[in-house]
Write a protein that binds this DNA or RNA. Structure first.
Lengths: 137, 137
DNA sequence: GTGTTTGCAAAGTGTTTGCAATTTA
DNA sequence: TAAATTGCAAACACTTTGCAAACAC
């Protein structure tokens, strides 16, 4: 998503009306490199950028983008939801102390054969979270 | 933890006074096979078993047991904490629809070489969560 | 007795919801 | 103008906290 009008086209393609809020949030999220954000972080960032949007709309938008496949929720922390603009298959470092989420670069973590799910179930997705702590702590 | 007095000894060893509530909860948790419980589940189970204990104490106790190394928190779900009586190194299946946590049997999931953590950090632990959905859904 | 633990109720955090007002197409 | 979206405030689920009463040693 480069230009403004490309953003609009992408939102339409995803079945989402390109409202002022959605366009602005999409530009925050998808301009530049990949990001990991919590709702509160995105809210603060929007405010700082002069985007008028409510926290409820931030939550709505994050979930709509996730449903549309533009974002992926990263389940690193019980307590708070994080969203990743990198929707490719990959895993995460997480620093609980600071709430920092980082991608583990492709290939840096090999996941052998997957376990056989119990009867009646199939694997939906596999999430690996490598929890970090500050060295020498 | 088999007998009643063994439970008391184990709690003392962990630096925890063997109060009526702690002993009763320890027996619920550590008698029989390994368990995965949420605070609310343990609370209901305690009530059903005629153990008089408040929800606040359930939370306190779960965290004290975790700090003492008797339990391990399993970070499967943003929104709710689960605790595992199996403190050995292993991973989990999780069924979001039902909130069910299951151990992945040792060796069923091979985790190759771990990624190098960013400078200044070291790996604390690695959690793999295999999310399941009902077959044919 | 002294320090620890408990239970209650209140507060806290992150998230969702109901609905009237606004906006988009 | 009809349908979708927003924003507010209230509700929500889960968890933590403050403090007086109860308990363990």
């Amino acid at each position: 998503m480069g230009t403004f009008s490309e953003t609009i086209v992408d939102l339409k393609r995803a079945g989402l009306r390109p409202t002022r809020q959605r366009v602005a949030l999409a530009r925050l999220l998808f301009t530049g490199g990949h990001r990991h954000v919590s709702a509160e972080e995105l809210f603060q960032e929007a405010k700082a950028g002069g985007i008028q949007v409510s926290l409820a709309t931030i939550y709505n938008t994050l979930h709509q983008f996730t449903d549309a496949g533009l974002l992926r929720e990263v389940p690193v922390d019980s307590g708070q939801s994080y969203f990743d603009t990198n929707i490719s298959d990959h895993h995460h470092f997480f620093v609980p102390a600071t709430g920092t989420v980082m991608d583990i670069s492709d290939g840096a973590l090999e996941l052998g054969e997957l376990p056989t799910p119990p009867d009646g179930f199939e694997i939906d997705r596999v999430d690996v979270v490598v929890r970090l702590k500050v060295l020498n702590g």
